[in-house]
Amino acid sequence: MCAIAAPEIFGSDEIGNAKVLISGEVPAALQAKARRAESNCPERAISIIE
């Protein structure tokens, strides 16, 4: 789900588990997408640290 909401930030490994593609701060242009990924994750696995 996160890879759909924010494909620039989240992808998946070879078995389909989600993984984060970037490190450090989320670029300003992607912050809205990052929040969307957070609020749509059915497993509540994403948290954005501010």
Binding site: G16, R36, S39, N40, C41, P42, E43, R44
Partner: peptide, 20 residues
């Protein structure tokens, strides 16, 4: 819809393997 944490595919360790 902005916030959609739906569970059509279930949740937890048995979450649908074929969802994609």
């Amino acid at each position: 819809r902005e916030n959609n944490r739906h569970v059509a595919f279930g949740s937890g360790i048995h979450r649908c393997a074929g969802s994609n």
